[in-house]
Design a protein around this nucleic acid. Structure first.
Length: 432
RNA sequence: GUGGUUGUAGCUCAAUCGGUUAGAGCGCCGGACUGUGGCUCCGGAGGUUGCGGGUUCGAUCCCCGUCAGCCACCCCA
């Protein structure tokens, strides 16, 4: 037995590659619809690109090592630092707002589970140079559309939106100190998954008072703007801090996407650099891990490249999305079927098959033929197995009349076509 | 990284209490079928039962280790 792929890494056989092509193609179509341009960077980066600003969470899971030149390097775990560097380096020459997307393969060193490998692909879309809340709505709408485009609707997935500015104002208003705020973030993040007693217990252990715990429980259940205003009343200037969030939600409603969107203050996000809006996409049944996550990181470009530009973006991974598509029966069949299969009858047809095959391929058709002499029945079985739309039979009888036979394999019909007109005939037949 | 659980053909699975040569379906290859396809029939290839060790007259089965998958933690691109 040859060695298997490393744990958490995937082989893409043609079926799986076909799906990957479908994902990437759909993502590209949606992103370019929003005026986004594609870019890429190196898969291997200096370790310090991530140790600097991403926070401990991601650093402990880095796939890193020392290269032969003694450099500390890491396979990229996320795209944002690379993007920030690239933009910062040319910030003065780029027209704002910058709308860029990429589909990088990302890596992390961690024990794998369902929906979580050591390698995955991710659609990354970022909007740089726009501080206003319509930019946030634009990015969230793009994330929603990048999932909607596969045929998923509001009963399949939801986007939950929160805002770090609001959360910090709320927690400050509750009188929590720095350490208690950190605990509160963790508890909020787990609220949907952990039993309520566990959450309350952790807050109690951090010496958070019963009143504050009660307010947090109420806030965690808030899903609408009106409920938020009521629950946040009297807690610092939380309602004022939520003005951008309110406008973002209003913009999403104006776009007609309200049915996909929930306000949800338990969305925290692990990455340390988020400064404002944060959001995640989940399957509506809550069975899978998050499909997509993102938010605003207005200080990252300053910290990483010394350029003061506001920014926000998201990452949408292929693994969980694929699970959801399979679950909903939305994975299309293999797209790599051929157009025409050529079948020769006897040895004397072989050179004519080669000539026609080349002629049709030059015309842009996808063509296959049997590479060694075979009975006609067997050649047609191969044509079926390849999902060919049409088959062409070349034999002595037809050749004598300057014709050949074209078969529509699905319709089970066939017709005689003049040899010198077959190219145009096939192109026409395939168009329908 | 911690704990639990599972590993038999390319895939899905079977194999009596520990007992002779580890089987089936699908898939793959060939034939029936040298001018007409998805069906049918026949045949074939394909296994170090994840790997290593132990117990036993004898291990797919019991025990230990290890690797891998899955699940739960940790954490969350």
């Amino acid at each position: 037995m040859p060695p298997l792929p490393l744990p958490g890494f995937r082989d893409f056989y043609p079926d799986e590659f076909s799906l990957r092509t479908h994902l990437f193609g759909t993502w590209r179509a949606v992103a370019t619809r929003y005026g986004f341009q594609e870019y890429d960077g190196p898969p291997l980066e200096p370790l310090e690109l991530y140790t600097a600003k991403s926070g401990e969470e991601i650093v402990t899971q880095l796939y890193n090592f020392t290269d032969k030149g003694g450099r500390e390097v890491a396979l990229r775990p996320e795209m944002t630092p690379t993007l920030a560097r690239m933009v910062a380096a040319r910030a003065n020459g780029l027209r704002k707002p910058i709308r860029w997307f990429s589909i990088p393969q990302l890596y992390r060193y961690e024990r794998q589970q369902r929906g979580r490998l050591r390698e995955h692909f991710q659609l990354n879309c970022d909007l740089i140079g726009e501080p206003g809340p319509i930019g946030d709505a634009e990015i969230i709408a793009l994330a929603v559309d990048a999932v909607r485009a596969f045929g998923l609707g509001p009963s399949d997935f939801r986007v939950r939106v929160s805002d770090r500015r609001v959360l910090s104002e709320l927690l400050a208003g509750l009188g929590l100190d720095r350490a208690q705020v950190a605990v509160a973030y963790q508890v909020l993040d787990k609220f949907g998954r952990a039993p309520r007693e566990v959450s309350v217990g952790r807050l109690r252990d951090a010496a958070v008072g019963p009143d504050a715990i009660g307010r947090l429980l109420t806030l965690s259940g808030v899903r609408t703007w009106d409920a938020f205003r009521e629950a946040a009343a009297g807690l610092g200037d939380a309602v004022g801090a939520a003005e951008p969030l309110r406008r973002t939600l209003a913009a999403l409603e104006a776009m007609g996407l309200a049915e996909f969107v929930d306000l949800d203050l338990t969305i925290v996000r692990g990455l340390a650099y988020y400064t404002g809006t944060v959001f995640e996409l989940f399957d509506a049944r809550g069975e899978l891990r998050a499909i997509c996550g993102g938010g605003r990181y207005d200080n990252l470009l300053q910290a990483l490249g010394g350029v003061d530009l506001p920014a926000l973006g998201f990452g949408l991974g292929d693994v969980v999305l694929t699970e959801l598509l399979r679950d909903r029966g939305l994975v299309p069949g293999d797209q790599s079927a051929i157009d025409v299969f050529l079948a020769g009858i006897g040895e004397e047809d072989a050179s004519e098959v080669l000539a026609l095959a080349h002629e049709l391929r030059d015309a842009g058709l996808r063509v296959e033929y049997a590479l060694s002499p075979q009975p006609l029945g067997k050649q047609l079985r191969l044509a079926d197995a390849r999902n060919a739309r049409l088959a062409v039979v070349l034999g002595p009888d037809e050749r004598a009349r300057g014709e050949l036979v074209v078969k529509d394999l699905a319709a089970k019909t066939q017709s005689a076509v003049r040899r010198d007109a077959v190219g145009a005939w096939l192109l026409e037949a395939l168009r329908g």
